[in-house]
């Protein structure tokens, strides 16, 4: 089994969790380094929340090991948990407490020393825009403010690892912008795991992305590589009277041809070439019946849909 190096804040290997006969999470690996933001994607029921619960010590894995900042979460849970801040899908808010009381409680539970309590609470309230509602009861706050209190609770003790389960759900566009700004800020000093369904959010905020499907990791790459992949162009070509693929592949500037449908082709362009003109003139001259030519959108959304749809059909 690989060993974590000191830069790893989360190091989880062979993580498996089953509920009875149902395997919710199957042998996944998750590594996170200091200052990194990891986007954690997957359709509903893919096992994201279960994974996050395992990373935060809320449930124990059936197999596998998790270490947080080099501390084994299963052997020394309290020591490891001190480095984690967690915002679950439903923020764990006590409606009967005021924002101040609640954040003080969260800070105390996470072992912020008494002398630094007031300072930590004030700082996190400024950071999350809660100063104006500090003395209000949490139960009377709007959903957006409650979500912010949830985030504040997760970062009040300045943890090394922040795990956020769908933090922007149910917020209005302005609040989403604020929260995204906050997450970007957090990414500078902490490591963040961010689960979300909003794909542009991941492209905007994350350094790396992992996609989970049916309990397994089906994609793991950096956003930079994904963007690179996007530029390495492919063209989608629709021909009513298609020639054999070999004939198409012979057009200059084309690296590979893949037939995706009766009349549709995905054409891989050779690096640096632009075969669009050649394709159009060939199609005209040889009567291929060209009805569609478009650069393929190889965005995160495509990757996501491709990976998580394909297995549904099987």
């Amino acid at each position: 089994m690989p060993e974590p190096d000191p830069a790893h804040t989360i190091f989880a290997h062979g993580l498996t969790r089953s509920f009875g006969n149902h395997v919710a999470v199957n042998n996944i690996t998750l590594e996170l380094r200091r200052g990194e933001v990891l986007g954690f994607l997957g359709p509903n029921g893919a096992g994201k929340t279960t994974t996050m619960q395992m990373l935060t010590g809320n449930i124990a894995p059936t197999h596998g090991a998790v270490s947080i900042c080099g501390i084994d979460l299963l052997e020394r849970p309290t020591a490891a948990k001190a480095h984690i801040g967690y915002l679950p899908e439903v923020p764990p808010l006590y409606r009967e407490l005021t924002v101040n009381e609640y954040l003080r409680l969260a800070a105390r539970l996470h072992r912020v020393p008494r002398a630094m309590l007031a300072e930590a609470v004030t700082r996190v309230q400024q950071r999350c825009g809660l100063v104006n509602v500090a003395t209000k009861l949490i139960g009377t706050l709007s959903k957006g403010y409650q979500q912010r209190v949830g985030i504040a609770q997760a970062i009040v003790h300045a943890p090394d690892v922040v795990i956020l389960d769908e933090p922007t759900i149910g917020l209005d566009p302005n609040q989403i912008r604020d929260i995204r700004g906050l997450i970007r800020e957090l990414g500078g000093t902490h490591s963040v795991v961010l689960s979300t369904h909003i794909l542009p959010e991941v492209e905007m905020l994350c350094d790396r992305v992992q996609i989970m499907h049916y309990g397994s990791i089906v994609y793991s790459d950096t956003i930079a590589a994904l963007k690179q992949f996007e530029r390495g162009a492919t063209i989608v070509l629709g021909l009513r009277r298609p020639p054999p693929p070999e004939e198409l592949a012979a057009v200059p500037g084309i690296a590979a041809v893949e037939r995706t449908d009766e009349t549709l082709f995905r054409v891989q362009v050779s690096p640096g070439a632009d075969p669009t003109d050649a394709l159009v003139s060939h199609a005209g001259a040889r009567d291929w019946g060209l009805y569609r030519i478009a650069p393929a959108q190889n965005s995160l959304e495509d990757v996501f849909v491709n990976l998580t749809r394909r297995e549904d059909i099987q």
């Binding site: 010590g57 849970p77 490891a80 948990k81 679950p88 764990p92 609770q153």
Partner: peptide, 13 residues
């Protein structure tokens, strides 16, 4: 109410 998570995630035995 799903509030037990706060204490369960905290470094408390």
């Amino acid at each position: 109410n799903q509030t037990l998570v706060l204490i369960m995630s905290a470094p408390v035995s």
